[in-house]
Design a binder for these strands. Structure first.
Length: 425
RNA sequence: GGAGAGGUGGCUGAGUGGUCGAAAGCGCCGGUUUGCUAAAUCGGUGACCGGGAAACUGGUCCGCAGGUUCGAAUCCUGUCCUCUCCGCCA
């Protein structure tokens, strides 16, 4: 969320930003609520002050009569205080609900537009698009021929959108994980396997809505837990409520986790095969940074994503995400879209976001500079290293050969133990 | 899952109804002393929200949420977490 004071001082800017992002939030109503809230706060504090004053006097009362008289006075004050406090709480809750709906500010260079059609292509990969002298297959057909994925079994066990990886696809998943983690270790990231569930207040701190008709999240009945949609949730939640030393920043983590998404309302749209599934494995990068570090850190995360896909010899383009497509927390977001021959178009495979202090403020993650008074909110960033299901699509489809085999890129061979996937026997 | 113990400031740790935002020690910052370092010594040293140009000042915070009371770190309830023992288990 944004700083309440900042909103009051920059009402027009915030309204314009909401419009650019397609966020229908009543900013004026928030401003009005916030102003009455402040006035009420002063009133409550004054009542508290008087209540405290009276309470202190009771201990020093000279005799029983005076004591009783003051107690009565205290009782009356308490009633008034409680009433005022209740009004304040109601105002604060309503203002807070609105505040949490206001999206982050947007980077001045982010393209302005209501949806992904306004995304701006920045550059393309050194790997050029493949030229096939045969009719390329899509990953579903390839997986079928090579016996790599069992969609039917997935559907019968857990429903549409679930799948079993099989044979070399399993080795590929492990190889991709290992490749990503090794690369990130070389970059100074601390590797973590994270919980696949998280408390709902962590979810909403990161910016997800755990329950409700629009939710993308599976929640666990009779508990405060949900299945995570990304390790961004657990990694970001690690330091909730904590104050870190400035000199310990930036902190870099890579998380290995499963991701679960209901994909409510997304059926039929590019839903074939592994593209839009309810569960996948992902290696995620997460950074806790000082404000002055976050711009460069976003470039760094994007650079790592590019290098990972360069190593996989997969063609892609990098886009600067338009304001309307940023979601709530991101200040700026770069996506890598890999070429997917089966669809004949680019499909999102990774995403790197600078969320500035938006998540940190919700999760209350601060930093302290040695020798300076007070604390400030740090910046959080996240980026996909490898989302296995989508990386598999790009890998299979781009590296397919005329003879029906898949050539494995050099970087995965040490982990896979072979240079080619072929039909068995 | 069962039985206990406990969660207090950056850390250790006192505090069982008022003068407690909280002893003491450590750490940290500053002064004095001092060839240098160390030691000694004196003083300062929590966070958040608000008011004020500032000095300063009001409120809130002793895991979290409620309750009792004029008044709660302290009493009550719930909850989360940690530790120990037992059971179960990959």
């Amino acid at each position: 969320m944004l700083d309440r004071k900042f909103i009051l001082e920059n009402i027009e800017l915030v309204k314009q930003n909401c419009a650019n992002r397609g966020a229908a939030v009543d900013v004026d109503r928030f401003v009005e609520l916030e102003q009455t809230r402040k006035a009420k706060l002063i009133e409550v504090e004054e009542l508290n002050r008087r209540t405290n004053e009276v309470s202190k006097l009771i201990g020093k009362a000279k005799d029983q009569a005076e004591r009783e008289e003051r107690k009565e006075q205290g009782r009356l004050l308490r009633q008034q205080t409680q009433a005022a406090q209740a009004e304040l709480d109601a105002l604060a809750a309503e203002a807070d609900d609105l505040l949490r709906l206001i999206p982050n500010l947007s980077h001045p260079e982010a393209p302005i537009g209501v949806d992904d059609k306004s995304n701006l292509e920045l550059f393309r990969s050194p790997t050029s698009l493949p030229e096939f002298d045969f009719q390329p297959l899509d990953h579903v057909e390839l997986a079928e021929r090579l016996d790599l994925v069992d969609f039917e079994a997935g559907a019968s066990v857990a429903g549409h959108g679930f799948y079993f990886l099989k044979n070399d696809a399993v080795l590929l998943e492990l190889a991709l994980q290992r490749y990503a983690v090794e690369t990130l270790l070389g970059e100074g990231f601390t590797p973590l396997t994270t919980p696949d569930l998280a408390r709902n207040d962590v979810l909403s701190g990161i910016g997800f809505i755990p329950r409700g008709p629009e939710t993308q999240i599976y929640s666990v009945e009779n508990s405060d837990l949900s299945l995570i949609a990304t390790a961004e949730i657990t990694l970001g939640g690690m330091f909730a409520g904590q104050t870190l030393e400035a000199e310990s920043l930036p902190k870099l983590f890579c998380g290995v986790s499963h991701c679960f998404r209901t994909e409510a309302g997304a059926h039929g749209r590019a839903a074939r095969g592994l593209f839009r599934v309810h569960q996948f494995t992902k290696i995620e990068m997460f950074a806790f940074a000082l404000p002055e570090q976050s711009d460069a850190m976003l470039d760094r995360l994007r650079g790592i994503e590019c290098r990972l896909f360069d190593g996989l010899e997969i063609p892609y383009r990098v886009v600067d995400t338009a304001t309307g497509d940023l979601g709530g927390p991101a200040f700026r977001k770069f996506d890598l879209e890999a070429w997917m021959p089966g669809r004949g178009e680019f499909g999102e495979v990774t995403s790197a976001s600078n969320c500035t202090d938006y998540q940190a403020r919700r999760l209350n993650i601060r930093y302290r500079i040695k020798g300076e008074k007070g604390t400030k909110f740090l910046h959080t960033l996240n980026g996909t290293a490898i989302a296995v299901s989508r990386a598999l699509i790009a890998l299979l489809e781009n590296h397919q050969q005329a003879d029906g085999t898949i050539v494995i890129p050099e970087v995965l061979r040490p982990w896979l133990g072979k240079d080619r996937i072929a039909v068995k026997g």
